[in-house]
């Protein structure tokens, strides 16, 4: 399942092993494991404090209609056939926003017609999700990995690295410092490569 490298350090050997499997399973479930290059999990249940730092393989690009659907133009109408169903609601919203509801006709869940458009290339470049969306999905997956009671959470992100630190009660400066150091190390590795 894993195509990325996952490193776990912590005070509980059993928990380390189980959380590595859990982390990879959840990332696989949300479809992000393939886009992760390296992950570092620091698990300190005795404190309790958990840090997960994720280095993505490449800058997450925004998806466009051309990426998730096949399009063809015919007699001033563009026919869109959505291939990746997860983007169906976003596609419809983006088309409504651009052309208005009168010109967009949804034949069924995955097939949409847009009237009054000459070329399919015009529709292909319409973004269906923001560049923030993949990062939000990774952060959401990290919250799923973290234990439920660990509610006080901070995220550091930038330079293709996302680092999340969480504790149960007060987020102490030394915890944030440890997370920042790990984040910087991951960013440094990325730049070095």
């Amino acid at each position: 399942m894993a195509t990325s490298e996952t490193e776990v350090t912590g005070t509980d050997p059993y928990g380390n092993e189980m959380y590595k499997a859990l982390y990879e399973e959840i990332m696989f479930d949300v479809g992000k494991l393939a886009s992760i290059e390296r992950s570092v999990l620091v698990l300190k249940p005795d404190v309790p404090m958990f840090i997960i730092s994720v280095k993505m393989k490449a800058q997450q690009a925004a998806k466009t209609i051309g990426d998730i659907a096949s399009t063809r133009a015919e007699r001033k109408t563009v026919y869109i056939s959505i291939v990746d169903e997860t983007y169906a609601p976003g596609t419809l919203t983006a088309l409504w926003k651009r052309y208005g509801r009168e010109r967009v006709k949804q034949e069924d869940r995955l097939n949409i017609e847009v009237a009054g458009v000459e070329e399919s290339a015009e529709v292909d470049v319409i973004p269906v999700e923001s560049t923030e969306q993949p990062i939000r999905e990774v952060i959401g997956a990290l919250w799923r990995v973290m234990p439920e009671g660990i509610r006080n959470r901070e995220v550091i992100s930038g330079d293709n690295v996302i680092t999340a630190v969480a504790t149960e009660e007060i987020m102490r400066p030394e915890m944030l410092k440890e997370a920042q150091e790990l984040h910087d190390r991951m960013v440094g590795e990325a730049e070095h490569v």
Binding site: T11, D12, Y14, G15, M18, Y19, L22, L43, P45, D46, P48, P147
Partner: peptide, 17 residues
């Protein structure tokens, strides 16, 4: 919980927790 005949209580992966 005491109304039942028995209880299976499920906890997690960390020994200290």
């Amino acid at each position: 919980i005491d109304e039942y005949d028995a209880c299976v209580f499920m906890l997690g992966n960390f020994k200290s927790c």
